[in-house]
């Protein structure tokens, strides 16, 4: 499974939805609220064994930014 697919899978679980679009963002996804944003960050840290700083977590507001941030940390 590639990075994008894995992230989508985690998002589906955290947001409790069946699928997420490729352009999913805090703006267009109702379940992606501030609280679940942190759950998402915590799950991503666990899944990819990395540490995200609060400032970095705040920047990860849509799918592309999440992927870009994870790539920069790997």
């Amino acid at each position: 499974m590639n990075l994008e697919e894995k992230v989508k899978e985690i998002m589906c679980e955290v947001f409790d939805v069946d699928e997420v679009a490729a352009d999913v963002s805090q703006k267009n996804c109702e379940q992606w609220d501030s609280l679940r944003h942190l759950t998402l960050a915590s799950e991503l840290e666990e899944a990819f064994d990395l540490e995200l700083e609060p400032e970095e977590i705040a920047e990860m507001t849509d799918f592309d930014r999440v992927i870009a941030m994870l790539k920069s940390k790997m």
Partner: peptide
């Protein structure tokens, strides 16, 4: 306790234990 998450979200119990 995960202080990073506590200070961002008022969750003292570490969310990684969810």
């Amino acid at each position: 306790v995960n202080w990073k998450y506590y200070l961002m979200s008022q969750t003292l119990l570490n969310p990684k234990l969810a």
